[in-house]
Design a binder for these strands. Structure first.
Lengths: 144, 144
DNA sequence: TTTTAATTGATACTTACTATCAATACAACG
DNA sequence: CGTTGTATTGATAGTAAGTATCAATTAAAA
């Protein structure tokens, strides 16, 4: 038995905490996200939920990013992807072959940030780090 | 006298080395990039060069990214920006207030990558790191 | 100079959103 | 529980950042 998926309540509670209404559409988007594991695009969700308007899907995803329920990141070519947030403060590895997204936590990254405090003029207010990989599965598979 | 800008020849030579033709339009795009210092958008260049087709501007920028003459990066909201590459292997700090982009080199970043080799399954093929800051000038300015 | 493949630009299309705004529905109140 | 007010929704149109197409042009090798 691997780690159980975050129950839907967590995301819903995060929305409630932000003073937002819990609508049927928002429940559907959250449920659709939980049915997947790994990265997904906004269109993936929109196509999976024809009953929910595209605008609503995009709006809900944005809310969930703000609430730290999901992360928005980008493939090397800039294509935006979303990925559920499980680990508190983390970064992403993205397989450039199959698109699989994994979270990782590495304290050395935080150390880099501290080291940059000395090197960079100004106040650090955020950062983004993505590591592009060829995952084990893709390395082992025949093609490519 | 601060560091002189990279002479146009460097970018042109990079294109030649890639077996590409040196056209008037490509010269114009390279010259426009060199006239700026800091980040710029593709539209900035396109509007500055009404004599060069939009498609050509985008095509040329893509070539220059591939040739490592410029970098493509993104603001926190995803807006794509370009920035000239001066330092061999570097990352970017982006001021979230004024948009100023600076390059920095930090060996700890490379150390993180090595540390990740142990933590991540698969082969690391690339990475991206952006640090978002409020630059000295913006911190000192009155508004915000 | 000739030739030929690379390049260009006008246009239309695509992707990933965002704005608008009337209609709807959550949820707080009584 | 019914009323009510505001948040939310969805259809549609618009925007930003490109990419595809393809006939016309041009760099540069011969």
């Amino acid at each position: 038995m691997t780690t159980a998926p975050t129950p839907q309540l967590d995301a819903i509670i995060a929305l409630e905490d932000a003073g937002l209404r819990i609508t049927g559409q928002r429940r559907q988007v959250v449920a659709a996200i939980e049915r997947r594991d790994g990265g997904f695009t906004a269109e993936d969700i929109a196509m999976e939920l024809p009953g929910v308007g595209r605008a609503t899907v995009y709006r809900t995803l944005k809310l969930l990013v703000t609430a730290d329920v999901i992360c928005k990141l980008a493939l090397p070519d800039g294509t935006p992807m979303y990925s559920p947030s499980r680990v508190e403060h983390h970064h992403h590895s993205v397989c450039t072959t199959c698109g699989a997204i994994e979270e990782f936590r590495d304290t050395t990254v935080e150390r880099v940030l501290r080291s940059l405090t000395r090197e960079i003029e100004g106040e650090i207010v955020g950062h983004r780090m993505e590591v592009f990989i060829r995952c084990q599965t893709c390395l082992e598979s025949p093609g490519a």
